[in-house]
């Protein structure tokens, strides 16, 4: 109890390993988990009313 490998793979996927950069299975699973999470975290757009309100408050 793998945890050390997951930690390294995680840092690799975050581009945080120094040039440090069955194991292949762990890498592909961590990658697909990451993509799964990202696919669910949708980007959202602020309303034009919010942008206008901010600009108005900055002006006055």
């Amino acid at each position: 109890d793998y945890q050390e490998l997951v930690r390294k793979v995680t840092m690799y996927l975050d581009n945080e390993l120094s040039e440090a950069e069955a194991y292949l299975k762990v890498l592909s699973q961590e990658k697909s988990f990451r993509e799964f999470i990202k696919s669910k975290l949708h980007r959202r757009k602020p309303s034009p009313a919010l942008i206008k309100s901010i600009k108005d408050k900055i002006k006055t």
Binding site: L41, H42, R43, R44, P46, S47, L50, S53, K57
Partner: peptide, 24 residues
Amino acid sequence: QIDALYTFAYHLTYNEDDANDLVQ
């Protein structure tokens, strides 16, 4: 940066009004 800030605020609060207030 407003789109990124609004997305962050929304995922923190899961409430559009709260996200608007936070960004403002």
